[in-house]
């Protein structure tokens, strides 16, 4: 294949357009019109085949990413298990004690309030980097303020969050937080809803 012909076919690949076929061009390429048409059709077939081939190769790449992720996760889990001695029972008991101020305010079951969560359920274990939240469909504002507190009433994070289709996500470097009971406050003007969650709920003393 002539280099000039490959350039034409590549341009066709990029733009979907072919140059007008003049006798001069055919002479330059040293092929007949029929041969040229055949090359273009073969290029079309090549691109379809490439799409299938590309998918197969991309799947292989994704499998590699998956493997990397699983390996990383295994390493992190090992680190967490190794660090269990760092949390004596007394500290754990204190960290998991409910905050008395919020007793009875934690919004666990009422799904009819305009500021309430459908998922996750109240008392969830925060054990992944990002958690997706879904509000009830009564909620109409486009953003919310939120605060995250530990059970000693200490505010650890506060910010505003955009709501898209009643959903929002929060990222939390949960592995850096001490195991214990935490509170998520959602604030919309003068409406406040409080939800509790845990870090390493499996360590909560009976």
């Amino acid at each position: 294949m002539d280099k000039q012909l490959l350039d034409i076919l590549d341009k066709y690949f990029q733009t979907g357009q072919l140059p007008s076929l003049t006798p001069q061009l055919l002479e330059e390429l040293n092929i007949t019109e029929q041969e040229f048409q055949e090359m273009c059709l073969t290029m079309d077939d090549f691109l379809v085949a490439m799409k299938v081939f590309g998918r197969q190769e991309l799947k292989k790449e994704i499998e590699t990413w998956k493997g990397e992720m699983d390996e990383e996760e295994l390493g992190e889990a090992q680190q967490i298990t190794d660090g269990l001695d760092n949390f004596p029972d007394a500290n754990l008991k204190r960290a998991f004690t409910p905050q008395p101020l919020y007793q009875g305010l934690v919004n666990g079951t009422n799904r009819n309030k305009p500021l309430s969560l459908v998922v996750p359920l109240n008392g969830f274990d925060w054990n992944t980097h990002s958690i997706d939240f879904q509000l009830t469909k009564d909620f109409t504002a486009s953003h919310l303020s939120f605060q995250i507190e530990n059970n000693q009433n200490v505010t650890l994070f506060n910010d505003t969050i955009d709501i898209v289709n009643y959903q929002f996500s929060l990222d939390l470097d949960w592995k850096k937080l001490h195991p214990g009971r935490y509170y998520l406050k959602l604030i919309d003007g003068n409406k406040v809803a409080i939800f509790e969650f845990f870090i390493r709920k499996d360590l909560m003393p009976d």
Binding site: D45, V48, A49, V52
Partner: peptide, 14 residues
């Protein structure tokens, strides 16, 4: 993703 014979031949070459 349905491909014809000619495309299948090129896929095999690829």
């Amino acid at each position: 993703t349905d491909i014809n014979n000619k495309e299948q031949q090129i896929l095999t070459v690829l």
